[in-house]
């Protein structure tokens, strides 16, 4: 229990540092859904290399750390229908709301953005209710 929250805190500090580097270095808000989404719908065409290189770093860093820390295990469900529904909801939702846990959550809350705080309240509430409904009532996940 204890090492887990310490690792959470250390990892969190690194995530915040990543956002700080992106903001002070490139003047951009580090939002994963915005960085990925801009590549998908073409709205981020002008700085696509920034985005691709950033994502390459996100993808590659855990591979370099594997074996030193953590367990390379996502424990994700293997229910394909659930995965597809979840992926579609996350993709559509984050782009409509213009942000996810990193953009609205980390970057928004830290500048006391009202929209970021409200978005975070709503996605956490929706996630919590989803757990109640699909885990405790239906037993699907």
């Amino acid at each position: 229990m204890q090492p887990e929250w310490i690792m959470g805190l250390i990892g969190g500090l690194l995530i915040g540092l990543a956002g700080a580097v992106f903001l002070l270095g490139n003047g951009r808000i580090m939002g994963a859904s915005g960085i990925i989404g801009g590549l998908v719908d073409g709205s981020g065409h002008s700085d696509k290399w920034d985005r691709l290189i950033f994502l390459a770093g996100v993808f590659a860093a855990p591979m370099a750390l594997m074996g030193f820390v953590g367990t390379p295990e996502t424990n994700a469900t293997d229910n394909i229908a659930v995965l597809i529904a979840a992926g579609l909801l996350v993709g559509v939702g984050t782009r409509i709301a213009n942000g996810c846990t990193s953009g609205h959550g980390v970057c928004g809350i830290s500048r006391l953005s009202f929209r970021g705080i409200i978005a975070t309240v709503f996605y956490i509430l929706a996630g919590g209710l989803t757990m109640v409904f699909f885990r405790h009532l239906l037993g699907v996940i």
């Binding site: 994963a32 996100v58 591979m63 909801l89 939702g93 709301a97 699909f134």
Partner: peptide, 28 residues
């Protein structure tokens, strides 16, 4: 903002994944 966040939250709860971790965990 509200509708999008609710949809995102539902998906986040269903699979336990959001955009950042979905890329970070791709290799394993």
């Amino acid at each position: 903002l509200i509708v999008g966040s609710v949809l995102f939250g539902m998906g986040w709860g269903l699979a336990g994944l959001c955009p950042g971790p979905s890329v970070a965990s791709l290799s394993f």
